[in-house]
């Protein structure tokens, strides 16, 4: 795929087709109005571009199918964990009922007293169903309480984790601040050392100039004495 936005020529009818890049901008509504209208007009009369654009639109529509799930209070794993034991209890109750039904059928055939057997079987069924119902209800209640405890525990651990993270961030910030201040102190110390050295150099040079100046004064004074003596001698002669 090329990066150019050049238009391509078609064989029949000498239509100038917009480039794929232009069509993409068109599909995502990123074209100025005039260009958009121009492309719409072209699309109306060009079956080739019509098909291509329709294909892209179909793909874009397919992309919309992936919607991100909304986070729930309990994860899928936790939910399945909660309800799995209840399902096991239900299955166990069903098996017990099935066995009771089979035994009842066999015993009823042996006795021949259908009415008595049916009544006995019915009461047995009712009793077992009631027992299973009570057990299931109790189990669901216990599971709900456990789930609630799990949610509370998860919330507490999340909060603790965040507090730990926050403490870590604060510590990191503090360390950075300490490092920064140490760097600043070191830079100031270097500047101070440099200034002291410069000051000492200047003082030394100044003292040198003073000594030289004093020597110059002494020399000049000596020469003036010599000149005065010479002048005095000349006058006396």
């Amino acid at each position: 795929m090329q990066d150019s936005n050049e238009k391509t020529e078609s064989q029949p009818g000498h239509l100038i087709h917009p480039s794929p890049q232009e069509w993409i901008s068109y599909l995502y509504a990123e074209l100025p109005k005039a260009t958009r209208l121009s492309l719409s007009a072209h699309r109306e009369r060009c079956p080739h571009c019509q098909a291509q654009v329709a294909q892209w639109q179909a793909t874009m529509k397919n992309l919309d199918a992936w919607k991100l799930p909304v986070a729930s209070a309990l994860s899928v794993g936790e939910r399945s964990g909660i309800f799995q034991p209840a399902l096991k209890w239900a299955a166990a109750a069903a098996i017990v009922l099935g066995i009771g039904f089979g035994v009842g059928r066999i015993s009823s055939l042996a006795s021949g007293d259908m009415e008595t057997a049916r009544a006995s079987l019915q009461s047995e069924f009712d009793r077992k169903i009631e027992t299973a119902r009570v057990e299931l209800a109790g189990h669901f209640q216990r599971q709900q309480a456990d789930a609630l405890q799990q949610v509370v525990a998860a919330s507490a651990s999340g909060k603790a984790e965040m507090e730990r993270l926050l403490t870590e961030l604060a510590r990191s910030a503090e360390e950075t601040r300490v490092v920064d201040s140490e760097s600043m102190a070191a830079a100031l110390q270097r500047l101070d050392d440099k200034w002291t050295a410069l000051h000492a150099g200047l003082r030394k040079e100044l003292e040198t100039v003073a000594v030289l100046t004093e020597d110059g004064f002494n020399d000049t004074q000596h020469k003036l004495y010599q000149l005065a003596n010479f002048t005095q001698t000349s006058v006396n002669k």
Partner: peptide
């Protein structure tokens, strides 16, 4: 926008559009 994507990825805007075309073709 394609312009913003170009800034994020530090590539020309035309390249972003070309990649989008190619991506849609492959997805199709």
């Amino acid at each position: 926008k394609f312009r913003q994507i170009a800034d994020v990825l530090a590539i020309p805007e035309g390249t972003v559009k070309s990649r989008m075309v190619e991506a849609l073709n492959q997805l199709n």
